[in-house]
């Protein structure tokens, strides 16, 4: 393996890692951009998605079925959360829903511990996606290639939904100026409900997609929350395009640092975040003043 090939392979590894980051950050950013709710339970939805996914996969044997089941169940769970817990807190400043979701994440983790035990579940790669394949620069796991493709499909679908569909138009308008949208006779509360559900559904999807390469445990969402916040801050809170680009960027920065200085890899993404905050406090693609 030549040095150039190693560098390229390392970059592809970073992109695969980054596609999970991007997916996670999109959900977080979507909710924040529209509702200005900082969802601290995002990692918990990721974990719930992984659990439901592994459970459905072992029951039905179909990976596709598990993806669908997770999308709808974590989405429904998100709808319930918004309707019952988050909605009463609108208009009280961003720290109320932040504390609420923070507490909720602990509740969810403990409920999963009670139902499935503290040891975690065994998760295996779907048979068709096992093994590795030569991609010209060296061997790379098939599943991670699938991960990049799956993330691309989900992101494209979301983009089409928001940019090209009627509902997307309402969502975008609602984010810009909820007052005017309300005057036009549209129920903004329903839009927010939908957005929250969509965000959690995508978090659940990232969980089920990450399950085969990670260990599925009650605490698996905790580090993920930190990473997705870093990505969201780098990309700009509330910017979906920013979340995608920052996700890939953070993945590649992590990966390349790991190649030359493995001990600094963890630190590198925080250094990147600090740098972005100094140069561009609103993030690479963020709008100013969202937190006010």
């Amino acid at each position: 393996m030549t040095d150039l090939n190693l560098l390229l392979l390392q970059t592809v590894t970073g992109i695969a890692l980054g596609s999970v980051y991007a997916l996670l950050a999109i959900g977080l950013s979507l909710i924040f951009g529209m509702l200005t709710v900082v969802n601290f339970a995002h990692g918990a939805y990721f974990m719930v998605g992984a659990y439901i996914g592994v459970y459905v996969l072992s029951a039905t044997g179909s990976f596709f079925a598990s993806l669908l089941a997770v999308f709808f169940s974590t989405g429904l769970f998100g709808l319930l959360t918004e309707r019952v817990l988050v909605r009463p807190l609108y208009g009280r400043g961003p720290d109320y829903p932040l504390l609420l979701t923070f507490g909720l994440s602990y509740v969810i983790i403990d409920v999963i511990r009670i139902i499935f035990g503290v040891e975690g579940l065994q998760s295996s790669t779907p048979a068709a996606l096992q093994g590795s394949v030569n991609i010209g620069i060296g061997y790379f796991p098939i599943y991670r290639l699938f991960l990049i493709a799956a993330a691309a499909v989900i992101i494209t679908a979301l983009w089409l939904f928001i940019e090209k569909s009627r509902y997307g138009l309402i969502i975008r308008a609602g984010a810009r100026d909820p007052e005017i949208v309300r005057i036009l006779g549209i129920d903004v509360a329903k839009v927010w409900l939908l957005v929250f559900g969509l965000g959690t559904a995508i978090a659940g999807l990232s969980g089920v997609l990450a399950a085969p390469i990670r260990t599925v445990t009650p605490e698996m969402g905790i580090p993920v929350l930190v990473e997705s916040f870093v990505v969201t801050v780098v990309g700009g809170m509330g910017s979906i395009g920013g979340a995608v680009i920052a996700g890939l960027l953070v993945g590649v920065v992590y990966s390349l640092t790991a190649l030359y200085a493995p001990a600094l890899a963890e630190l590198s993404i925080f250094a990147l975040m600090a740098l972005v905050l100094v140069v561009r406090p609103q993030g690479l693609f963020g709008r100013e003043g969202l937190m006010e």
């Binding site: 390469i213 260990t215 993920v224 790991a258 493995p262």
Partner: peptide, 20 residues
């Protein structure tokens, strides 16, 4: 000898170098 933080969830970035 690659050192990773305890509780890391993704090890992929350490693997290409070891493979090479």
């Amino acid at each position: 000898d690659i050192r990773h933080p305890i509780g890391a969830s993704d090890y992929s970035t350490f693997l290409p170098r070891i493979m090479s």
